[in-house]
Design a protein around this nucleic acid. Sequence first.
DNA 1: TGCCAGGAAGCCG
DNA 2: CGGCTTCATGGC
Length: 302
Amino acid sequence: MIPNTNSSYVRVPTPVEFSFEESLVFLNRSLQENLHRIQNDRIIKLLDHQGELILIGVTHAEQHLRVEFLNGKPSEAGQRTAADYVWEWFDLKTDLAPFYEMAAGDPVLQPIVKRHFGLRVLGFPDLFEAMAWAITGQQINLTFAYTLKKRFVEAYGKSIVYENEIYWTFPSCDEIAALAVSDLTPMQYSARKAEYIIGIATEMAKGNLVKENFINGKDAQTVEKELVAIRGIGPWSANYVMMKCLGFTSAFPIADVGLHNALKYQLEMEKKPSIAEIESYAENWKGWEAYATFYLWRSLYE
DNA sequence: TGCCAGGAAGCCG
DNA sequence: CGGCTTCATGGC
């Protein structure tokens, strides 16, 4: 055993309304997930900071997350990147008090919110990953979506080995921009989805599509419109990306079948609710539709 | 085995 | 803008 002489870490403060256990449940939902690993209440994940591969181990302690650097101490900028990543990943910036106040009086959300208090939207800080994953998951079941992602990551991501386990980064847009559709179809991506993903990677690699463009105080309606103008991004994907990457708590992927199923079970309905019915329930959620959706998703895997 | 899956583009009126 | 058709492929 080689002692880790480079042991170091940073702390990321956590709000009162935060449950690490709920985060673990969410991050554990697929056995095929290969972008992080959970061992003994520690989440291990590989980050790529401008080519510098940083393996972090995230654990929970009093009022903070401890972000440990497992493969040596990163540069100063790398440490900041890691802390910022965790901050976004667990959505620690959002003040949930108003959401809980609303949910306490909401017949649909009240029981779920009580059961999973402290759950926060687990996000994708990387815009390319958020978009590529949204497209991958369109109109196919989640199990198959994870299969596709696994193949994609293991074909084009970067990796390191740590304690006999391999850790992957999500492929960069530059890497994917150089591909042809025929590179992705053998791994069972449809040609259409391959076009979408490569197209988005190409725009990002050229600098025409950047996250900062969407988070500079633009209103949700404008951002949604700009996203939907991108080929492969429809209303569902736009709202999914806004919810999981761009920090819009009002984003609402209303066409989501998981949301429909959650409402059906939660309300003990014979069949899935119509869009009009969902809009009716959601009138009370204004400004917090993303959180309402995320908690409803959570209710699907008790 | 047939319906379903964390939809979107394209076309038509 | 609203509705209809096509695409695509595995899961259960």
